[in-house]
Amino acid sequence: MITPFSRMKAFAAEPTVGKSTVYPQLRRVRNSGRPNLARGVLIAIVLIYVTALIVVPVMALFPKAFSNGIGASWDAITSINALLALRLTFILAVAAVVVNTIFGIVLAMVMVRQNFWGKRFVNGIIDLPFVVSPVIVGFMFLVLFGRGGWLAPTADFIGIKVAFSWPGMMLATIFVSLPFVCRELMPVLKEMGIEHEQAAYTLGATRWQTFWRVTLPGVRRALLYGITLTFARAMGEFGAILIVGGAIAGKTETSTLFIFRSLDNRQYVAAYSTALILALISFVVLASLELVKRKQRE
C-alpha cells in the first residue's frame, strides 16, 4: 500500500527527540554535527534545488499572467468561456469529493475491519489510479461507453450520454482521485482499534450511532486531509477529461482544458491568468493541508 501523505509528514517539522531526556529543551537535532562545512553545503544544495525546481517556476507565472496589464488578465478570466470552465472544474471536483468521501469511508472500513479472500489484490487495485496514465483513464471510459462499448447500451437505455459529455468527465475525475480518502483513513482506523467502538456498543449505541459519534470523529483529521487531496487532484485533472470530454468550449471544457485551448489559439494572457488562478487555488489547498497537519500534531 502506498503510504498516505498525511502519514508521511506527521511530525515532519519536529526535531527528533532524544529519548533519554525528559526536558523538552533538550530536544536534539544533530547539533553534534561536527563537519559544519558539510552540513552547510548539504542544506545549501537542498535549498537551491527546491528553489530552482519549485519556487522559481511558480514565481515566473506571476509577471507573465499580467504581461498585458491587469485589465487584460481580468477580461480574460471573466470571459464567458473561462467562467463556464471554472464552474465545470468546481462541479467535477465537488462531485469527486462527495462520491469518493462516501465510498472512501466504506472502502477503508472494509479494508481495515474485514478479512476476505483476495484482500491484497483489492488493496493493489485501490492504488492503481495513482499510477495509471490520465490518458488511459479518459480512453478507457471512452471505450466503455463509446460506440460498441460494453456499457454503451446501458447508458443509452437510461438515456444519458457519457462519452464526450460531462458524465464521462465526472467518472474520469472520480477515478483519478479515488484512492486519497481511503488511503488517508486506513492507517488511522487501524491505529484507532476497535475498543472505542466496543465501548460504545456496551453502552447501548447502535452500529450507526457508533459510526457517527465514535468512529467518524476519531478519524476526522485524516478525512479532512483526504478530502483536501481529493479536491486538489480532481481540480487539476487534465488528460483524462480532455479525452473523454472532447473539450468543447463552454460545454465540456474545464479550466485546465481552457488553458490548453488558449495556448493553442495563442491567447497567452488567458492561458497564463487562468493558470495563475489554479495555482492560487493550489496554494489555498496547500495552506489548508498545513493547517490540518498542525492540528494533527497538537
Partner: peptide
C-alpha cells in the same frame, strides 16, 4: 535527579555535544 545535567555532561565528554 532528572534534569541535573548528567547525560549532557557525558555527551560532552564523548564529543556528541559541544
Amino acid at each position: 535527579p532528572s534534569g541535573a545535567g548528567k547525560s549532557t555532561i557525558l555527551r560532552v565528554i564523548a564529543g556528541l555535544e559541544k
